[in-house]
Design a binder for these strands. Structure first.
Length: 104
DNA sequence: CCCGTGACATCGG
DNA sequence: TCCGATGCCACGG
């Protein structure tokens, strides 16, 4: 039984623990499509599971905050992450410490 | 139904 | 080191 890539990505996103962040590429890779990072962003963009899916825990490969269809956008996203304990370096996330190791 | 676009990531020059 | 182009999936018009 094959779940749509979308479903997988949402599942993975929900698995990200509080205080950690994952990159779109990371989710895409775990979902089985290492090059579908763009698609992952597309899933969050439509974001049908808005509050159900912690899309705010998903950042760009550089730790830069992008998009966000809720609240004020990036500003809200950044605030939420900081509140959860994610370290910020300027306007980016400290992937060195807050990057989700994945499902190891 | 078909085309275009989008919250990315990676490689090559 | 920086810029440009490509690949993937789904959704909207």
């Amino acid at each position: 039984m094959k779940k749509s890539l979308r479903e997988k990505v949402y599942e993975l996103t929900k698995l990200v623990p509080q205080g950690k962040v994952a990159t779109y590429g990371q989710l895409a890779k775990l979902a089985g499509k290492p090059k579908a990072a763009r698609a992952v962003g597309g899933f969050m963009r439509t974001n049908p599971d808005a509050p159900r899916t912690p899309c705010h825990r998903v950042v760009a490969h550089d730790g830069s905050l992008t998009g966000y269809s809720a609240g004020k956008g990036i500003s809200t996203k950044r605030k939420m992450l900081e509140k959860e304990g994610v370290l910020f370096i300027g306007n980016k996330v400290d992937l060195k410490k807050s990057l989700w190791p994945g499902i190891v």
